[in-house]
């Protein structure tokens, strides 16, 4: 499996390039955004959880998870009820009932990939805080450069089985 995004928020400089790049690539909507805590940024986007709360609550099964694409929206099934947004633990999925597409979430730049291009945020991030690198190379880079401690507990809401997805494919190494 490849193509999932890794975020090393310690490299993030809060330049907002990913946000504007994403908006430009998708024609609007905040699919990635910086959340700030004490002035420090953490770029957040859909984590494509394996046991996705958004998919779990969807009455029409319009959100589906698969190994290759993460959580995907099947637009023709979606009724725009907005329950998925309430279920998302990270607050990175939005529903605009009167817009097209209705569910605004990171789709890993499906359209760009179909043209053989890299996701907009990955391409544009000046410090390579967002990468598509598979896991092992990310870890190797850290080890050769002992500038930051290699730390990492997974985020709290996903304890136990539900945390599998976010622990595997997201920013903690």
């Amino acid at each position: 499996m490849s193509g999932f995004l890794h975020v090393d928020f310690r490299r993030c400089t809060a330049c907002f390039a990913c946000e504007t790049a994403c908006r430009t690539a998708h024609g609007g909507g905040l699919r990635i955004q910086l959340a700030f805590v004490d002035g420090l940024p953490v770029p957040l986007m859909c984590r494509h959880c394996e046991q996705s709360p958004c998919a779990a609550v969807c009455p029409e099964h319009a959100l589906v998870w698969d190994q290759d694409h993460g959580v995907t929206l099947l637009a023709d099934r979606c009724t725009r009820c907005g329950l998925c947004a309430v279920a998302c633990p990270f607050g990175v999925l939005f529903v605009d009932p009167f817009a097209q597409p209705s569910v605004i979430k990171c789709d890993l730049c499906r359209a760009r990939r179909a043209e053989g291009k890299r996701p907009a945020c990955v391409l544009t991030c000046p410090t390579e805080a967002i990468t598509e690198e598979p896991h092992h190379s990310l870890r190797r880079r850290r080890l050769t450069t002992p500038v930051f401690p290699i730390a990492g507990k997974p985020p709290r809401p996903f304890q136990g089985g539900a945390s599998r997805a976010s622990r595997k494919r997201n920013d903690m190494v």
Partner: peptide
């Protein structure tokens, strides 16, 4: 939720 998540991530990684 985003702020709490950012806080968790930053706390977990000290």
């Amino acid at each position: 939720r985003r702020i709490e998540e950012a806080h968790r991530v930053r706390t977990a990684t000290r």
